[in-house]
């Protein structure tokens, strides 16, 4: 038995993800971070939206909440504010977080609520068979972009930072230990922490775009992801086709429940 097995609901496994899907890797990286952080299993809540990634909550042995499409962050905000002693982790996907839930994403970051948000970025709507998301790269094909996407994608890390998140990081399903460490550090930040986890969808995205099978997609991650410190030193022309991973931003700002405690104090109340 592995030390992190207790964080899974074994009677709910095997999971429903396709063979070769990276979501299981990211889910494991999350529980390893929880284990390293030694979070109280009964005081930790996993909140997810709708999509492939968001099915993860059902497999995880905590209080878990599978919300409506796009709404994980405001549900999670309510949980955290109602009971600030809970550790609240949000699992979301690229469509869930940056399309239908985009407004909640930026406002969660703006308020700096103490949430750890992990975005499983597989560049596609996998659950529904491969429609384009706001993170589908330019030119890549989807069932709703059969000639290649002309919609410019977001960089969700830049978006999170600009909106006020106090911890922003990225890693990939290939860099499992690094990914887990990025999540671990995010859990240590008292405020809105955002971690983009790049994960492969060989079925609905990889196949359509001739990216090969899962090992090939993972290989692509290993070859094109560059640690941020190294990436920053690369001359512009050598950055072409590469992307940085690591901690992009980390700052201090009053966390929301702390700020609201001041409101309660000013009003003369007590929790």
């Amino acid at each position: 038995m592995r030390s992190y097995d207790k964080y899974f609901r074994e009677n709910r496994l095997p999971h429903m993800w396709c063979p070769g899907c990276g979501n299981g890797i990211v889910m494991k990286a999350i529980v390893q971070a929880i284990e390293a952080k030694n979070l109280d299993q009964d005081k930790t809540v996993i909140v997810s939206g709708i999509g492939c990634s968001s099915r993860a909550s059902g497999y995880m042995n905590f209080d878990t909440l599978h919300t409506a499409h796009g709404r994980a962050i405001p549900f999670a905000t309510g949980i955290k504010l109602a009971n600030p002693e809970l550790n609240v982790i949000v699992i979301t996907g690229d469509g869930d977080c940056t399309a239908i839930g985009g407004n909640h994403f930026i406002h969660g970051a703006r308020r700096n609520v103490d949430l750890t948000v992990i975005l499983f970025n597989n560049n596609i709507y996998g659950m529904t068979g491969g429609q384009a998301s706001p993170l589908t790269p330019l030119g890549k094909k989807a069932t709703t972009a059969p000639y290649g996407s002309v919609d410019r994608p977001f960089d969700p890390c830049h978006l999170a930072e600009a909106a006020g998140a106090t911890y922003v990081a990225r890693s990939t399903a290939y860099h499992v230990k690094h990914l887990s460490d990025m999540i671990f550090q995010g859990m240590g930040n008292k405020g809105f922490s955002f971690i983009e986890a790049i994960t492969q969808c060989p079925i609905a995205y990889g196949r359509k775009n001739k990216l090969g099978d899962a090992p090939e997609m993972l290989k692509w991650m290993s070859e094109t992801a560059v640690m941020k410190a190294a990436y920053d030193k690369l001359p512009e022309e050598k950055r072409e086709g590469k992307f940085p991973i690591g901690v992009f931003y980390n700052s201090e700002f009053t966390e929301y429940t702390t700020a609201y405690q001041k409101v309660i104090d000013l009003a003369g109340g007590a929790r």
Binding site: V45, V47, L65, T67, A68, R71, P74, F75, A76, T77, G78, I79, K80, L81, A82, N83, L86, N103, H104, H107
Partner: peptide
């Protein structure tokens, strides 16, 4: 939508 989502979260938290 966030206005109702946030209260549903709070309701689940007691």
């Amino acid at each position: 939508i966030a206005g109702i989502a946030v209260v549903l979260g709070a309701s689940l938290a007691g």
